[in-house]
């Protein structure tokens, strides 16, 4: 174990820690629907699916349409180029990436965020252990 190895290991460990900092500091900028309307570029909007409004799949255009409500409670229609995303019904929040035009959000991809907590009812939890 000479000096060269120790120095090398220190440099490697330091760089790995340096790279690890990158994902602890992620701050993704979500836009609200109104901001996306003005932005005239690609944007990503986070929100919830409005379950009362109609949802339909157009097999000819292969597009999926639904209504979404962003964090400012603005409701708008989203048309996704493609099939219905997985786990759409149970998702607790939805992130749509795409462009806004004519008050319709044309999404190129829709991400569904599923509950990642592996616990049931909080009250009942105390009984498990």
């Amino acid at each position: 174990m000479n000096f060269r190895f120790i120095l090398g290991i220190v440099v490697i460990v330091a760089s790995i820690i340096f790279a690890s900092i990158s994902f602890t500091e992620t701050n993704i900028e979500y836009m609200s629907f109104n901001e996306a309307l003005r932005a005239d570029k690609k944007a990503q909007v986070k929100g919830e699916w409005v379950k009362d409004k109609p949802v339909y799949f157009d097999p000819v255009k292969n597009s999926f349409s639904f209504y979404m409500k962003d964090d400012n409670e603005t409701e708008f229609q989203v048309i996704l180029e493609g099939a219905k995303p997985n786990n759409f019904e149970i998702a607790e929040s939805i992130v749509a990436k795409g462009k806004c035009s004519d008050n319709i959000f044309h999404a190129s991809s829709v991400l569904t965020k599923c509950p990642s907590k592996y616990e049931g009812n909080n009250e009942a939890l105390k009984n498990t252990i």
């Binding site: 786990n87 149970i90 907590k117 049931g120 009812n121 009250e123 939890l125 009984n127 498990t128 252990i129």
Partner: peptide
């Protein structure tokens, strides 16, 4: 849904029985 004993697992919405794979 409401685990009362140590031998009951809670239901996780969206995962149900599939969580056992963890």
């Amino acid at each position: 849904e409401f685990p009362m004993h140590w031998y009951q697992y809670p239901i996780i919405p969206g995962l149900e029985d599939k969580f056992r794979n963890i």
